[in-house]
Amino acid sequence: MTHRPSRVTGRAEDDPIVCRCEEVTLSEVVRAIRDGYDTLEELKRHLRVGMGPCQGRTCLPLLAHILSRETGRHLAEVMGEISVRPPLIPIPLDHWRGR
């Protein structure tokens, strides 16, 4: 689906990928949080995490846990800040146009 070559060259056990679609690693997420991007919405805009074809299904729960751990805020509070944007799954433009 994506045309870009992978940016990730490190070993997964050293720095695991948190967001597969956009290839964002754990250390990048932690650094961004420490730089002040300390809500899910801000992390998303800064790192593109959750903006890929999975619509954040895989990465957002992981991100919420990391964010909760780094900031000491409750998981539910962190999760509650994210907005869900349709469509729920990627659907081709042809479908939306109708026939």
Binding site: M51, P53, Q55, P86, P87, I91, P92, L93, D94
Partner: peptide, 9 residues
């Protein structure tokens, strides 16, 4: 562009 999937609106 018809085959391109919409990810988000």
């Amino acid at each position: 562009l018809g085959q391109l999937a919409v990810l988000r609106q």
